[in-house]
Nucleic acid binder design. Sequence first.
DNA 1: TGAATCTAGTTGCCTTTGTCAACTAGTTTT
DNA 2: AAAACTAGTTGACAAAGGCAACTAGATTCA
Lengths: 147, 147
Amino acid sequence: MESHVEEIKHFNRFYTNVMGILNLYNDEVNYSATEAMVLYKIKNTEDCTAAYLSESFGMDKGYISRILKRFEKDQLIDKTPSEQDRRLLYIKLTKEGGEVLDYLAGRASDRVRDLISDCPEEDVEELIGSMKRIEQILRPTITKGGN
Amino acid sequence: MESHVEEIKHFNRFYTNVMGILNLYNDEVNYSATEAMVLYKIKNTEDCTAAYLSESFGMDKGYISRILKRFEKDQLIDKTPSEQDRRLLYIKLTKEGGEVLDYLAGRASDRVRDLISDCPEEDVEELIGSMKRIEQILRPTITKGGN
DNA sequence: TGAATCTAGTTGCCTTTGTCAACTAGTTTT
DNA sequence: AAAACTAGTTGACAAAGGCAACTAGATTCA
């Protein structure tokens, strides 16, 4: 049992490295990994609000507010006030916001593609199988507004 | 092939969440996750130097220097100048440094143990098998002074 | 040998990322 | 209608980390 814990920690160290490599190339791009995640979340959330984003990422609402402010300035999002509750602002991507997200996602995909480019197809299949298995096993214990 | 990339990105989002949860409780402790990693690396590296740490984590040497300065103030490490090259300072954990690392590692283990506490033993076995498989497949493509 | 070059580490200055608390405006509770 | 609550904004600040200049020592090479 205790060795299990150590092995998981070992994997976490390893995979932190992998993520680090994948997130490395943010230099060539105007938005941070966090901002990309926010854009992604906005796209995939109906009636998205700042409060939802803040809670969903476990981040300060002030910080989220500033990120959204920048997005608005850059015309990546529209905020439309709710009719029922006039405190709420529903956030959605503009056309340009969608394009920026697509671009960011494309760059991220490039890096992932690069990562596995030397792996034989069967290894990639196994890789993905393992990833799915991990998610199946761990998702129930996470279950907190996760992705 | 392209769906593979998407599935890996999906896993990355999921596992970022997992890591986030595991790293959440740094409040109760005086050292950040990065600092804990540095301590860990020092412990597991013979003739460890600041330059090695900086390169190994891909972090600025100024930043590493400051972290080490704090460690020295807190008496977690000793720096002993090399005889052969007097620019080099070999870093090793003091007794207290070892204890702090053990404590931090223990807290991290607690959180991992917590994470899997509801999983049946066979799931945990599978979880670890999947993790090992992922590392086997991806490590060759990383191979850059990694862990 | 001595000048040019290189490397390890430190430090000052700065940016980015993110938190906290106070505030405004609107909503719900009682 | 007062009290309590929630969404979002803003100012002040802290933490994390990069960049570049600098010192001291090592290496190269004429």
